[in-house]
């Protein structure tokens, strides 16, 4: 490159100079983008049906601490895997944008499907429907705390049943189970179900504009997921597994 061979020291100095002046990309916004993607990524990669739920609830996280042997459970389309612990939750059982309706019939008219009601829980104290534009509706049955159905410290209610038209085969409902949660495959009326115990949950929403939002509003402790009549159902209550299965099997 020159008349004489440059020395090692000269080459090193030249290399440092070259390195200082390269047209590196602007990395200033990486942290913001990475954080947004981490929140969205968990949801987007595996769960196509959840896209249709905007801005409805798309997935739940189970959080906890300590080691648990079950890292991944796959149950006919439900992926459950251990993930990082989300930020501290805020106690409220309500989904923003939900419409409160008076009766199961009104919920059916709004949601486009007839929600099943677990007879074991009696009449719901509140029925909410989320109907996102162009997405699948979700019905939530809320039950006040009472003897045998203790109030969740997180939700302030006794039980929440969430229903969405989806099946376990096609629905990919993600639960990122924290290491403190117990995750088990169980049966409800002979069909497959998943029981998650011992840790609260954080919910992700997908906004109409496509953004995935980590929502810490809706939380509960123990959760049973099962399928019935083309609906994917989720019971969240501070009850044991057998009681949860009994409640689920009473759904009519």
């Amino acid at each position: 490159m020159a008349d004489r061979r440059i020395t090692d020291a000269e080459l090193e100095s030249l290399l440092r100079d070259v390195g200082d002046r390269l047209a590196y990309p602007d990395a200033r916004h990486l942290a913001t983008r990475v954080r947004a993607r981490i929140a969205a990524d968990r949801v987007e990669r595996r769960r196509p049906w959840l896209f249709a739920l905007a801005p409805a609830l798309v997935t739940l996280l189970v959080l906890g601490a300590g080691a648990y042997a079950t890292d991944v459970i796959r149950l006919r389309g439900i992926d459950i895997f251990r993930g990082p612990q989300p930020a501290a939750p805020v106690a409220s059982p309500r989904i923003p944008g939900a419409t409160r309706v008076a009766t199961v019939e009104a919920a059916e008219a709004r949601a486009g499907f007839r929600p099943v009601v677990p007879a074991a829980l009696g009449r719901p104290d509140e029925i909410d429907v989320v109907t996102p534009a162009g997405g699948s509706s979700q019905v939530m049955l809320l039950y006040a705390a009472r003897p045998g159905l203790p109030e969740s410290q997180l939700t302030g209610v006794g039980a929440v049943v969430t229903e969405v038209r989806a099946s376990l085969e096609t629905a990919l409902l993600s639960k990122i189970a924290g290491s403190g949660a117990r995750v088990e495959q169980v049966r409800v009326a002979g069909g497959p179900a998943v029981w998650i115990e011992g840790a609260p949950h954080v919910v992700f929403y997908r906004e109409a504009n496509g953004n995935i939002i980590q929502d810490t509003l809706r939380l509960a402790g123990n959760v049973l997921l099962w399928e019935r009549d083309g609906l994917l159902l989720r019971l969240e209550a501070q009850v044991g597994r057998e009681e949860a299965v009994r409640i689920a099997e009473s759904a009519r």
Partner: peptide, 10 residues
């Protein structure tokens, strides 16, 4: 970050 602290990872 390993325990899910997004601020720490950020």
């Amino acid at each position: 970050a390993r325990h899910g602290d997004a601020d720490a990872y950020g």
